[in-house]
Design a protein around this nucleic acid. Structure first.
Lengths: 252, 252
DNA sequence: CGTGACATTGACTAGTATCAACCAAAGTGG
DNA sequence: CCACTTTGGTTGATACTAGTCAATGTCACG
């Protein structure tokens, strides 16, 4: 566990327990997404007092699979990769988490996955015991969490189909369309020419799709050759023909 | 939607609204598992009055992916395969459900997966609106459902690793050990000589593991040849050397 | 006994992985 | 400022796992 690598930042606002809640959550990237969106400003201000703000530098582990699940986290800013690994190093990324994403809820008392920062990340940390209290005080929180869990479950089922039955080409296009939907924060089809800012590296994409980096690279090149996408630079992708991509992706 | 194929059975006990709850749930295979386990006999008796008991014959669809999610179901007896399919027929089984399993909760208002009976199944059916009421009346139900959802999510993450990164041999052994744990209803390692009754066909197993039936068959034959399992008949598997199987499966 | 569903086995193929070379951009230190 | 290293990406040649196609086997059932 690389807890020692984490830098701690305890802003003065934390100590102003009776100060305006805006100082706590008003400028948070997660204020209107995830669990925080389920609460009123007052309730959130109350809840924020039990949160420990902290930062995680790019590349650092926040959560390690198998470690005792003592804390929960809510991402305020930045992005994380969530993954499981086999003893021999094979890795499967189970998802990418952004602001508003709630991390660390394990059915067991041990984390089921690892979480690593892809860029500089800030989170709110809660002790396991505190969450239980929060549920008692704010039932809306539990309801929202159930809603989020159901949503993640149906996404997981879609991902089963991708990992178990789709070809490399189908996987990559499914991923691009999913990423576009995530960036646009909506489910409507992206317009032709939509520009994606792709934070994950080719390795990340490969480990997410159950492929190798070479196959991801070749597939992107092939999609470009076919006029379906453009690759202005390594981390940008332009969707030239989203309708055709959707066709290839087999919905999703 | 093959709702017409479903046979309806409304036992007299349903109408005995004030009768002993034992008549309703006492002999149900799900009484002490899943959501029902979270409630007292009295609460369950109350809840049972809003349930419509029904039966689904082997091979029939209870839920169809994409259909309006008007009802929820709780399995009382029997087993179902849950799956998603692509337009061209490729199928991914997302799980196998037995007594106590809760079905049909969609984040959207449309079912995310299909559910088909593997043998003769009986379920309790609830209307979508009723479930909301039930949550208000029995908060324990919602808490239990969240617990179940979290558990399914961490299982899903394990399955991502299997589908994305494991070899055929690793997938099949992982499946055997999982099935053993499910039959024993516990997580302890199975004893050498443990006999599995495998309800799913080779096609089911293949569609669950992201393989073809031929690969599943060959892999089982290879495991038998290596002295790790025995195949007394098509639907029975004896775990000769569970420790070695666990080694191959890479934990799980 | 014939039929159909499911399973096994074999021969061959295809899609991805593996191995390896090369490229580009960004950072590092003399 | 420029050689050097590091990191991430692309491309090519080859290998190998699992898929495809096809024949055969087994069992239950009418």
């Amino acid at each position: 566990m690389s807890a020692t690598a984490l830098t701690w930042r305890r802003p003065v606002t934390v100590h102003r327990a009776n100060g305006p809640h805006a100082a706590l959550c008003g400028d948070c990237g997660a204020r209107h997404s995830g669990l925080c969106d389920a609460l009123t400003d007052e309730d959130l201000a109350f809840l924020a007092r039990m949160a420990q703000p902290m930062t995680v530098a790019a590349g650092q582990l926040l959560i390690e699979e198998g470690a005792p699940a003592g804390h929960f986290y809510n991402i305020n800013h930045g992005h994380m990769r969530l993954f499981k690994a086999l003893p021999d190093g094979r890795r499967q990324i189970t998802g990418f988490a952004a602001a508003g994403h709630f991390l660390g809820l394990a059915s067991d008392h041990v984390y089921a996955i690892s979480a690593e920062a892809m860029d500089d990340v800030t989170v709110c940390r809660f002790a396991r015991a505190q969450l239980h209290t929060a549920f008692e005080t704010f039932p809306a929180l539990e309801r929202k969490l159930l809603e989020v869990a159901m949503h993640e479950l149906s996404f997981a089922q879609e991902q089963f189909l991708l990992l178990g039955r789709k070809t490399a080409r189908e996987r990559v296009t499914s991923f691009l369309l999913n990423w576009a939907a995530r960036e646009a924060d909506c489910a409507t089809a992206p317009a032709p020419g939509t520009r994606l800012r792709l934070l994950p590296t080719r390795t990340d994409v490969a480990d997410y799709l159950g492929l190798t980096i070479e196959t991801v690279s070749r597939t992107l090149t092939a999609l470009k050759r076919d006029g379906l996408i453009d690759l202005p630079d390594q981390h940008e992708i332009v969707l030239r023909h989203p309708a055709a991509l959707k066709e290839i992706a087999q919905a999703v």
